[in-house]
Design a protein around this nucleic acid. Structure first.
Lengths: 374, 374
DNA sequence: CTAAGCAATGAATCGGGAC
DNA sequence: AGTCCCGATTCATTGCTTA
């Protein structure tokens, strides 16, 4: 295929109205990134005093929970009419909206094939320390009716994942740097641009070359860009003319068949599989309150629930406390501290060894147990 | 205290009925792992009371969807009554049920604090190769009403995560090997036993020592086991007497021991020294007229007898003056202002730290002299 | 020229106690 | 109930500036 595909469509306007104009059962896949209805408060500050640019666009404001339900049912129903019976639909969202989306999918009779969790490797921090760092978005994958055949390119995804079957949580970075579309002044063009790597996996898994992919919330056209790269056709609907123009420009600039490495790359397994003291406590290898001693029993400390040690009012990591008590600059806590095992005092490190050997033996057990059906 | 905590309760029966017997606003935390594979079809009648024979798939689907909604609303409402206004609730589920649960939480007026995704390091493979490997479960964290204060032990979780704030996706293994409870024949006792490490993070994050944790679907008592280890009380409700017996046996076998709060709760670094600047002046840790400087010496001010700072005619609290001079909206004066100590300029906060450690050492001294105060 | 340091920023439902 | 104000709080990455 050369240049822009004449079958691709850029449609301006409200997605429900535009979808109603499309022929019934005419697309093979729907990928939708609807507004999340974030309901943000005003003026969150960074610790340094800077302000956080939250999503404050009109399109993300809804009057009520019920209004968002109505909106969701409307576009899902319209999408369902356009979708072929053997096609599937993806929706991405966050905890703010995804439960309403999933609920309405089931209520409308869609059959859920599963969900996939995008685990962001570099999410925005939680600046106030009041909650967990929100580092995920959720995609729901569904078919319009239970039991129909559907496209799932199992082996393509498996080879993308180092020849192990692809799991439903994907560690991928957010869009940054030159991949992020900018306006004339260097500001981000769209507040919620998705990484192409995410769409790459979605389209590769659930569509085939020549298929038509519909994105009712096209934005700046990430779905179209990846569809183009992968030889799929697309229909993009967007109500903001500026976004739609940017999308067209972006997609028409892509050389056919161009596949940057960043799309295909699988993150190498993390090198730092070292075990922290906190992990041993979490997993119950040593309990909070348990006593540990230095080699000759000169120092005594107690294990705290977060994996640190407490002794005479000071607390610190096994290494830091050991160093402090000895008046030294450093100390290997794994060797310095002893824990009672079967009547004798063994180095803390033996707990790590026990954990490692236990993990190995359950692995073997698991592998010899391949009987359970799906 | 030794042995089982007399405050802990093992309640047999339907969770809604048992929760209705508990006092209103009596628990600090709810952790719920509701079933989703209910055989709901059996007792269901079509609207109008038509015969069950020849039930088509749609009726079955919509009836069971509605029945699971009813079930979910019933137990969530009962749990909400028992939960204190400042408490929080966790629910764990999979894509089969979590969207209904999340939807009903929001519909009932719960406010979502976020969700956490358990990413299983060793999930069951998908044997048919028709879907992604289902390697996650989702936990929703909610409070009964928006805007109330709630417990979140930020620093404890940060410690568990190598001193970086804890994200909302947790890589943890499924329960295997000796941790997995078995029946007499070596088969797993409960189909959905959760890892203690999961509950460890949940309880450490969102409860305090001495709090009461309610688990309405107690199963084999993982919640109770971890609550016991972490110095929390629990109420476990389970309708299967076999499970409840196994849970009691399991928990009572855990070595008890009363743990000081300091070992099972990590307080923020400064919690014990929230002292006003005026107090430091009053007690002579810093003298009126003494000079303080901003980090790089750009601003200079003098301490006034009432604890405020004076600089170039303006006066104000250490925070207000710091903010004013920098032209910022806010400023933490304890970090911003430096005071000379032993030839170098240390943050004002070190004075508070010195005062706190001096107080602590007198405490220890007193205790070592076996003097009982009062 | 490179290396180091500093600044900017990303779908965010991000206080609480005293008066 | 509203207002004031103290003071607690950030991770990974990119790109520009400075040494």
């Amino acid at each position: 295929m050369n240049g822009p595909n004449q079958m691709d469509q850029y449609l301006l306007g409200d997605c429900v109205a535009r979808m109603r104009e499309l022929p019934e059962a005419s697309v093979d896949l729907v990928f939708a990134d609807p507004p999340y209805n974030l309901q943000l408060g005003a003026g969150l500050k960074r610790p340094g005093g800077g302000s956080v640019a939250g999503v404050d666009a009109d399109w993300d404001r809804f009057d009520s929970h019920a209004a968002y339900d109505d909106f969701t049912r409307a576009w899902l129903s319209a999408a369902r009419r356009v979708l072929r019976p053997d096609g599937t639909l993806w929706v991405i969202g966050s905890f703010h909206n995804i439960y309403q989306v999933g609920y309405q999918l089931q209520a409308l009779g869609f059959w859920l094939l599963g969900d996939v969790h995008w685990a962001k490797t570099n999410p925005m921090p939680n600046f106030r320390g009041k909650r967990f760092q929100n580092a995920t978005e959720t995609m729901i994958w569904a078919q319009p009716n239970k039991g129909r055949p559907y496209t799932f390119n199992y082996h393509a995804l498996k080879s993308l994942n180092d020849d192990r079957q692809m799991r439903n949580w994907w560690e991928l970075p957010i869009v940054q740097g030159t991949d992020r579309l900018k306006d004339g002044e260097g500001n981000k063009l769209h507040p919620t641009q998705k990484p192409e790597a995410l769409l790459y996996r979605v389209l590769l898994a659930s569509s085939n070359p020549g298929d038509t992919v519909l994105d009712p919330f096209f934005g700046t056209g990430t779905t179209g860009a990846v569809a183009h790269r992968l030889g799929r056709r697309f229909v993009g609907i967007e109500r903001d003319p500026g976004y739609l123009t940017a999308a067209r420009k972006r997609i028409e600039a892509i050389a056919p068949g161009e596949l940057p490495d960043s799309l295909v790359q699988v993150r190498p397994p993390r090198a730092d599989r070292r075990i922290a003291m906190a992990t041993l406590v979490e997993e119950g290898w040593i309990a909070p309150g348990q006593e540990v001693r230095s080699r000759c029993g000169r120092f005594v400390a107690q294990v705290r629930a977060d994996g640190k040690l407490v002794s005479a009012g000071s607390a610190g990591s096994i290494h830091a406390l050991g160093a402090q008590l000895q008046g030294r600059e450093s100390c290997n806590g794994w060797d310095f501290w002893r824990v009672e095992r079967d009547g004798s005092w063994a180095p803390l490190d033996t707990l790590r060894a026990m954990r490692a050997s236990a993990a190995e033996s359950t692995m073997t057990e698991e592998m010899s147990r391949h009987e359970t059906p799906d």
